[in-house]
Nucleic acid binder design. Structure first.
Length: 424
RNA sequence: GGAGAGGUGGCUGAGCGGUUGAAAGCGGCGGUCUUGAAAACCGUUGAGGGUUUGUAGCCCUCCCAGGGUUCGAAUCCCUGCCUCUCCGCCA
């Protein structure tokens, strides 16, 4: 969430900034709510003050052995008046909080203008899409030929948009995950985290999935409700919720492999073929908790860590800076990494690396103690996929296929598959 | 699942219903001492918010969360959540 003070002091500037996302800020609604809040808060507090002073006086009178009945009579109707004011105030405060929780983050100055995906700006490319001397198959055909990828079976077990993998393909995905984790832990200095896959609504609120995007989540019958995580970002970032991190522990760098669950209610009809868009997929996620002044550099660095995986796997990709309209709700700035998929003849997102600045930190009350001021201050949070394992699997399959539909194992991966060089 | 105990500031830990936002210790910060450091000693030290030009002053809220009793609740009552101990069960 944004700093509530911004809405009181510079709401027009905020509205203009959010306009870049084509988000329309209802400034009149806020000013109306906040005006009433101000009035009622002042009244409530002065009533509380009166209650406190009078109660104190009663205490002293009693101690002095005086008759307190006249004092009690004076205070009689204060109680109702106060209770009334307090409940009005709390109602208003809740509306204001809800309103603010629905406002997206401010964008970084370097984020380009634009409405959608088409306006994203390519920053760099690595590798050249391979030139095939045959017609490359997509991962669905490759997997089906191997009898190791089955969408019908998964639909029988669960529903559409699930997959089953078997044998060497299942092993290849596991190898990819292990390789990614090892690289981030050994070479990039991350600490591995194992965390709950079901989280409560406070955690979902902390990272920004709730209250606005409940439709994208799977919930589990429980009281209070629990939600299946759509990304490891949620449990891992929320490790610092309601915490004050000591300066000497900063920055925190976490890596976690988890399955991810997404309902994606809005995406039906998109990517219906194959493993691109599933309700359940495996992902290795990078999370950093940093000092505010360090977050821009940490963002570049973290994106580089995700890129390192693609480079080692020798997968052609490009790095894209998302435009204003395509940048996610909680993010101030996002780079997407897009891998080349020969089956689609397209670059497709395989990682999304974002700097959230203090947006999530404020929702979570995640702070550090600034040694210069001695005060707790909001941290900055970042995360990125390093990488989406399901999509990495299909990228490897499609980019490393041969004429017969067999799949070469990228060199760095061979130690993770007992030295095998090819499957199929 | 059964039986107990408990949740208080960065941490440990006191707290008869009435100047207790909270003793004490540790830690932190500032200082004295010292060539420097340590030790010792002195001082200081919670968070969020309102009002305001104000990092001034004044005021409000916060002792797990939510309700309740009361003129007044960290202290009493109810509900929930969490932690610990013992027994049982279990991958």
């Amino acid at each position: 969430m944004l700093d509530p003070r911004l809405f009181r002091t510079r709401i027009d500037e905020v509205a203009r900034q959010l306009g870049r996302r084509s988000f329309v800020l209802d400034t009149a609604a806020f000013q109306d709510l906040d005006g009433r809040r101000k009035e009622i808060q002042v009244r409530t507090q002065s009533l509380q003050n009166e209650r406190n002073t009078r109660s104190k006086a009663i205490g002293q009178a009693k101690l002095a052995g005086e008759d307190i009945q006249p004092l009690l009579d004076q205070i009689e109707k204060l109680g109702h008046e106060l209770k009334d004011a307090e409940s009005q105030l709390s109602l208003l405060q809740t509306s204001i909080d809800d309103w603010i929780l629905g406002i997206p983050n401010l964008l970084d100055d370097t984020v380009p203008e634009g409405k959608n995906e088409a306006d994203n700006v390519e920053i760099s490319r690595f590798g050249d899409p391979r030139v095939f001397d045959f017609e490359p198959k997509d991962h669905v055909d490759l997997g089906t030929r191997l009898h190791e990828m089955d969408f019908e079976a998964a639909a029988k077990l669960a529903s559409a948009r699930f997959v089953t993998l078997q044998g060497e393909l299942a092993g290849l995905q596991r190898a990819l995950i292990q390789f990614m984790l090892d690289t981030h832990i050994r070479e990039h200095g991350y600490t591995e985290v194992y965390a709950p896959l079901l989280v409560n609504s406070q955690s979902m609120r902390g990272t920004g999935q709730l209250p606005k995007f409940e439709a994208d989540l799977f919930a589990v019958k429980n009281d209070p409700p629990l939600y299946l995580i759509p990304t490891a970002e949620v449990p891992v970032t929320n490790l610092v919720r309601d915490e004050i991190v000591a300066d000497d522990r900063m920055p925190l760098r976490f890596v976690a492999h988890t399955p991810c669950f997404r309902s994606e209610a809005g995406s039906y009809g998109k990517d219906v073929r194959g493993m691109i868009r599933q309700h359940q997929f495996e992902k290795v996620e990078l999370v950093q908790i940093v000092r505010p002044e360090d977050s821009p550099a940490a963002h570049e660095e973290l994106t580089g860590h995700a890129e390192a995986i693609l480079r080692k796997l020798e997968l052609p990709y490009r790095k894209v800076l998302l435009c204003a309209g395509d940048t996610g709700f909680s993010s101030a700035k996002t780079y997407d990494l897009e891998v080349w998929l020969p089956g689609q003849q397209k670059y497709r997102e395989i990682s999304s690396c974002s700097n959230f600045r203090d947006f999530q930190a404020r929702r979570m009350s995640a702070r550090w103690r600034n040694p210069e001021t001695g005060k707790p201050e909001l941290v900055h949070t970042l995360n990125g996929s390093g990488l989406a394992a399901g999509r990495t699997l299909i990228a490897v399959m499609e980019n490393f296929q041969d004429r017969d539909g067999r799949i070469q194992i990228p060199k760095v991966l061979r130690p993770y598959v007992n030295g095998r060089e090819v499957i199929g």
